[in-house]
Design a protein around this nucleic acid. Sequence first.
RNA 1: GGCCCGUUGGUCAAGCGGUUAAGACACCGGCCUCUCACGCCGGUAACACCAGUUCGAUUCUGGUACGGGUCACCA
Length: 545
Amino acid sequence: MDFNLLAQVLFPNVSETPNDIDRRFPDRVLKAGACVTRIGPSPTGFVHLGNLYNAIIAERLAHQSDGVFYLRIEDTDNKREVEGAVETVINAMAYFGVEFDEGAVVDGDNGSYGPYRQRQRKEIYQVFAKYLVQQGKAYPCFLTAEEIDAIREQQTENKENPGIYGKYAEKSRSLTIEQIKENIAQGKSWVLRYMGVETDEYITVEDAVRGKLEMPRNNMDFVLLKSDGIPTYHFAHVIDDHFMHSTHVIRGEEWLSSLPMHVELFNILGWNQPVYCHTATLMKMEGTSKRKLSKRKDPELALSYYQQEGISQDAVWEFLLTILNSNFEEWRIANPDTDYREFPYSLEKMSISGALVDLDKLRDISKNVICRMSAEQVCEKWLEWCESYNEEFAQLIKKYPERTVSALNVGKGGNKPRKDIETWKQACDFMSFYYDETFEINDEMSAECDDETRKIFFEKYLATYNHEDDSSAWFAKVKELTQELGFAVKPKDFKKNPDMYKGSIVNITNMLRIALTGRANAPDIWEVCHVLGEDIVRKRLEKWL
RNA sequence: GGCCCGUUGGUCAAGCGGUUAAGACACCGGCCUCUCACGCCGGUAACACCAGUUCGAUUCUGGUACGGGUCACCA
């Protein structure tokens, strides 16, 4: 077989050579040790947690080393592509604060190693496809889907490994130039397959997170170019990461089993492999066992879920960081006010077994992240979220900016700050009593206070109410009134002698709290009053007269 | 089924031949307290199993079990 002739038959329009491509993408000029990383999402319109998870690793690695972090769109499967999906990915990453130095942008490319959309790199792949044919390492295969199915059936029956390899590849491998020309002339579609070798050798690969991996050398005639001339992931990955000069390939462990193909290609093409980092799969608890997060069943897999729930970007990052690097939490405790970007991320600290996405933990982290922000920051971020997801509150925040900030400031100072807000969505619920527009009575006043005492209480309370009273003066009055009404000023006294009192101060403040906030549990009454202002306070209390 | 990866409390995990086997979340008590939250103190709870190596295995080796991944002209 004349491979050069075959290459010419297969790729008559490809005139460039590997050397030409080589010259187009010279080495990057970076300082020693700089990492070049990327994420390579496929534009299916669905961006999931795992994308962010891997993006964070890649971003950290690159930016901690003064390297380059880029975005490559892996759109080789046009069947799965969804309109506008590239923009979706870019926006989602931007929302979560993942910044690219180079790569695909909404309306094109940014950087000199592009194009960064694989379909636009067709010519590049074809140069190497042609080269591999010339080397006798690749061949056209005209097998139809039906024929392949039949082969697979036979293999299953014989308990052999499925796939096109060895004797199952013979039919295509043994085609003569004339037959190939003939097939092409007839318009038969073909794919380009790698010429696998039958072997029982093992290869070893050093994975940066898993250590030494041993696996059988590839023996498959896997597909390099699909019938539309677009490469499969395997071929595209090798070419792109070589020419874009990725130093580290961060991807999910589902790629582990195809690693031998990639190694094979790097070797055949004479290129150095990047450092592989195969990350653990994010899991979910179902019953008593873990399973992979599923796109259909688990809303929390979608990145959009976190946006909708109003979980702050920082919280998602910190959550992911805690499952990525086991020492992050310790670091956070030691450095409560430091930006998480200063945390020294390391591949060695990565967990290799699948972590479960624990929403409880996320909420806890979120609560602490928000607690660390100033009231103004909280207000700003909350408003930002409301503008997309809760129009009513967006209006309220804008209408009462000062009140909102002072409400958010309640219980903020000191070393035991309140942690009332977990998510922006829940903040709307929590904050609702500060605005007349959303204020409503949700809880019942305690039974110890009958209508009679209630009336008397509010009457007397309002009669002596002075908005200028400081916290202790205010409370002194409450205590006085408590006593007057026959309630115990100290809850403990009531507990000791329940017969001597109608109830305790707890019942009294409960009335006040419900009247003012509509709920039995809320922050400090005096502070709330001073956020609301005298008019609203009086108005809410007068309703009970 | 073949191949690959994994397995410390309910969850995330530290540990890297000798430890009372950290810590965080969740849960349960208690304290603080005008409620709730916060905070503080305390509690329940783990090395999958079986061999081997060793004076000694959670840690090293082998096997078993269980879980996961993958076997496409999808990534």
